[in-house]
């Protein structure tokens, strides 16, 4: 009997979307996505309340919302500890190191041929696994989390940056030669700008990695704050709404982080065909 209203909401939302999808304007597309999300939340809420699902297994969206409201300061402390101190600083250090390394090995094709396959290989490895080691080396506070993030983001950014620096076509390099351009000028004026789309691809991929690294590293030891710490202790206390609140914060932080990088990308690589299409 409980299934009927749930089914009704789901089908109602779906029918609305089927009807809206035929309009196909920018606004209608946004609306369709929002309606889908809202329907999902509503169905979730109804399933939990109508079937009396225990909070320990799945809290309702309203309970999660209440938990966010009630634990604002805790969530903020964890956000600062994990996202700003751990993930962001690690991402910045790892990214700068990768960019500088790519430029440093740029003049040596030998090193590139050696490093690139290894970098490609390492980028596909489960690097989070080094978290316990780095926690042992750098202690429980955010420094060890940042170190994990540095290692995680280094190789994907390095690989993309090296590929980007090599991406100029032979004609462009010949042109530089006809002007007798010194190495510095061709690097600064041609190859660095040309590498930007690749670099940003690497930077975007690694925003998520940075958050993952910072949170997972906290499972191996942390001070009494941080999102990973909170998630594991709240699970222990069966305070699932708080766990979900942390997840919500992580999701929002991840989306924002990615969004900011994508926005900077749009400003920097406005000339790239992929960005130009989005304009029109």
């Amino acid at each position: 009997m409980n299934a009927l209203p749930i089914l009704a909401v789901w089908l109602g939302g779906w029918a609305l979307n089927v009807w809206l999808a035929r309009i196909d304007t920018r606004a209608s597309r946004l609306l369709v996505a929002l309606i889908f999300g809202a329907t999902l939340l509503l169905v979730w809420e109804m399933i939990v309340t109508l079937y009396g699902v225990p909070t320990v297994i799945l809290p309702a969206p309203s309970q999660i919302g209440a938990s966010v409201a009630a634990n604002g300061s805790i969530l903020w402390t964890d956000f600062v500890q994990t996202i700003l101190k751990g993930a962001l600083s690690g991402w910045l250090i790892g990214g700068s190191a990768a960019i500088l390394t790519a430029i440093a090995i740029d003049r040596s094709p030998f090193l590139q041929r050696g490093l690139l396959p290894i970098g490609n290989f390492v980028a596909a490895l489960p690097i989070v696994g080094i978290a316990p080691i780095l926690v042992m080396w750098f202690g429980f506070d955010w420094q060890s989390k940042a170190a994990v993030v540095v290692v995680m983001v280094f190789f994907p950014i390095l690989v993309n940056m090296v590929a980007g620096l090599a991406a100029t076509d032979p004609m462009q390099r010949d042109l530089m030669a006809t002007w007798a351009a010194p190495y510095g000028a061709s690097l600064w004026k041609l190859r660095l700008p040309a590498a930007m789309p690749f670099l940003f691809n690497g930077l975007k991929i690694t925003t998520t990695l940075a958050l993952i690294g910072a949170i997972v590293a906290e499972f191996f030891g942390s001070p009494t704050r941080g999102m990973g710490f909170r998630i594991s202790t709240a699970v222990g206390q069966l305070d699932l709404p708080l766990v979900w609140a942390e997840i919500l914060v992580a999701a929002i932080a991840g989306t924002l982080f990615y969004g900011v990088v994508a926005l900077i990308e749009k400003k920097v690589t406005f000339w790239h065909p992929s960005q130009r299409n989005q304009r029109g």
């Binding site: 998520t208 958050l211 993952i212 998630i231 699970v235 991840g254």
Partner: peptide
Amino acid sequence: ASQTVPILAIAPM
């Protein structure tokens, strides 16, 4: 959008 969310981090939970 879900690709920007650190889903992996909640795996233990």
